[in-house]
Design a binder for these strands. Sequence first.
DNA 1: GCAAATATTTGCCTTAGTATAAGTTTCATC
DNA 2: GATGAAACTTATACTAAGGCAAATATTTGC
Lengths: 213, 213
Amino acid sequence: MLTEGMGLRERKKIQTRRRLLAEAARLFGERGFDQVSVAEIAEAADVSKMTVFNYFDSKEDLVLAPMEEHIGDVAQVVRDRVHGESAVAGVRRHFLAAVENRDPSVGMSDSPVALGLLQLIQQTPALLTRARAFFARSDELLVDVLVEEGEDRAVARIVAAQLIGTRNALISENHRRLLAGESAEAIASGAAALAGRAFDLLENGLGDFATRA
Amino acid sequence: MLTEGMGLRERKKIQTRRRLLAEAARLFGERGFDQVSVAEIAEAADVSKMTVFNYFDSKEDLVLAPMEEHIGDVAQVVRDRVHGESAVAGVRRHFLAAVENRDPSVGMSDSPVALGLLQLIQQTPALLTRARAFFARSDELLVDVLVEEGEDRAVARIVAAQLIGTRNALISENHRRLLAGESAEAIASGAAALAGRAFDLLENGLGDFATRA
DNA sequence: GCAAATATTTGCCTTAGTATAAGTTTCATC
DNA sequence: GATGAAACTTATACTAAGGCAAATATTTGC
């Protein structure tokens, strides 16, 4: 975060925000989400409780704020896809590149901090719930892009659900492996293979998948 | 709900539960979810606040309890599908039958009560959130069925996400039309056509859907 | 330095949800 | 039909999230 050209007020706000996020992460990491009150976080960051809610709409946001930035990623990728490229192809390309780059937003970071966050989220119902809301929002944003391009909204919702659902399942699988102790390095090739399979299913259809013998 | 053969205790419990649901629906309908406290509902139903939480785990459950019964529907349908039928075909068949039967669980009831509930849910973030949790649970249950049949879990998660996502998008579209004032009768044929399109996309793939010109 | 804008604090309030212990009702069994 | 156990409800008191209003402090542009 560049701070040049900012007034004192802006710089302080950024600092306070960072301090709140850091103290929250520390306390949550030590004791778990539900065992830390907002008041404690406020105290640790040396501000009042009200100020915490001034910076973050809810206690959950103290954990999930970083995720929030990526809500529009898929919609953006589809909007920016190259000529001749389908929606699925665009998402596939972007996802594979993210895996290649060990992008934390697709569950490819095995840093202690990222792992700690992941664990916290998985263990805390309130956070899981909130994370799901982000998926729902991603979906809406993608629908809007498709509608802008002239697709029927009802069809767009179906396609978006399939695309976002597939992508989330892939990310979630990466998370599972990270939490099982695998390194990002170890996960990478498997993740790419699985993604290939997943996007193939999307593009060519489930067909007679799981047909009862 | 048959009450024969039940003791007084069981009958009273059922009555209390119904009274709580009815009073909650009435009050929520009159003033909105957030403008009614649990204490008020308890008073209206002539029980203590604690008793409300004895019957329902949370305030949201007072609205969503009826939905909860259908969480396992898709998983059950897939588990029970006939020989030679694929997972998609099974879900398609069941969904189309539900539309035909104006089943409320797929958004095909235009009764005032159902409409009121729908509206309440759409307008209340906490309820929307909770409803999404049900979808997530549906998904997990479906994954379990596929895994039991021998599918790889990672692949099962991808397929389940596509199936459940598609179905939810269809239901959600029905909800949209209901809230726009259309009758279940009027929605039926369109819903069937859209469902056909949606499951075709699932079965045969998105292919070059939304390929940029 | 001063006034306007903006951030922060303080204190208070409502409400969901939990824990506990003490009452009350139902039921099975004799 | 009395009785004791089990199930259910209640009152009470508590915690914590979150929202609100008015007072206070800080930064800004001038």
